[in-house]
């Protein structure tokens, strides 16, 4: 069964719900049920926060190390270098997010115009 299996107007919407909305949403509902009464200060909450942070960090890594689209036009060292530069500026300048993000973007822009051109 694919999205083109039935020629009715509602089938694609049901398909989107079953193939994507429920497989995504179910983990959210399981999360609410699983947390139960675990609260601040529990060591299990530290584990949960570490895994959640690690997973988002891996998503960041995916964008830098295996990008799709325009970012892939730059070599790996330029992508990783711009990321590390922006983050280092952020850490150095008292964890100022705006300055860190701006610096990373400036590094990316310089790399782009040197390596790819306008």
């Amino acid at each position: 069964m694919s999205i083109f299996s039935f020629d009715t107007w509602w089938w694609p919407y049901l398909f989107i719900t079953l193939a994507c909305a429920i497989p995504t949403g179910m983990w959210r509902w399981v999360g609410v049920l699983a947390i139960g009464d675990i609260s601040e200060g529990s060591r299990w909450l530290v584990l949960v926060r570490c895994i959640a942070t690690g997973l988002v960090a891996a998503v960041i890594g995916q964008i830098i190390f295996a990008p799709t689209g325009a970012l892939a036009m730059l070599p790996l060292w330029a992508r990783a270098g711009s990321m590390v530069f922006g983050f280092t500026v952020f850490l150095t300048l008292r964890r100022n997010m705006a300055l860190g993000i701006l610096s990373g973007q400036i590094a990316l822009a310089v790399a782009w115009f040197v390596l790819v051109g306008v």
Binding site: T24, W27, R28, V30, G31, V32, A34, I35, I38, S39, E40, L45, V48, R49, I51, A52, L55, V56, V59
Partner: peptide, 11 residues
């Protein structure tokens, strides 16, 4: 990833 994220958010 939604599972630990939601669990961290609830408290």
């Amino acid at each position: 990833r939604m599972l630990p994220m939601v669990m961290a958010l609830v408290p």
